[in-house]
């Protein structure tokens, strides 16, 4: 199992990811799965260049990302998978990518979004998708940085 961390984070690559998670996990590759980002040339380049030297960044849409993740699962090299929304992870899961745990690392607040914990908010649709992920056997946990104790999504989700 080399998908060391599968994380939902609407800022994708940023301080917590680069300065904290990447180093702590010793990941050697970042795979970003997001349809909108995959279609944006500028963002693709910025993300590729924002990662530390020697850590390649791949940006895929959901279909391509699922195929790539399946390929990487068997590889011993530790990989960090980032997505912006639960829908993407659900897509990967439904395409057969074995994801044991998904980490909610950053989901910003906004109109129509309920705060679950600190900087983690979710819309009704997202809550439904997260529950669906749990039903498919993927544990959903909140762990913003590596030194935090993981909090099970189930314990915060009152709507179920």
């Amino acid at each position: 199992m080399s998908l060391r961390l599968v994380r939902i984070d609407d800022r994708l690559i940023h301080g917590q990811v680069v300065a904290v998670w990447l180093r702590a996990l010793g990941a050697k590759r970042i795979v970003i799965v997001d349809d909108a980002t995959a279609g944006d040339e500028f963002l693709r380049e910025v993300l590729a260049l924002a990662a530390p030297q020697g850590v390649p960044v791949e940006v895929w849409d959901v279909a391509g990302g699922a195929a790539r993740c399946l390929e990487l699962v068997g590889d011993p090299e530790p990989v960090l998978v980032l997505a912006r929304s639960p829908r993407t992870i659900l897509g990967l899961r439904q395409a057969g990518v074995p994801i044991e745990v998904v980490d909610l690392g950053g989901m910003g607040a906004g109109p129509g979004r309920r705060r679950l914990h600190k900087t983690i908010s979710a819309s009704e649709d997202e809550l439904r998708e997260l529950r669906e992920l749990e039903q498919l056997g993927t544990r959903v946990e909140i762990q913003i940085v590596v030194d935090d104790r993981p909090i099970p999504f189930r314990s915060l989700d009152s709507g179920n």
Binding site: H14, A19, L43
Partner: peptide, 18 residues
């Protein structure tokens, strides 16, 4: 804004904080 803020924070935190 939302596309750039993350990567720039990644580089910025690496530079300034770490």
């Amino acid at each position: 804004k939302s596309g750039l803020m993350g990567p720039m924070a990644g580089i910025g935190d690496t530079l300034s904080q770490s």
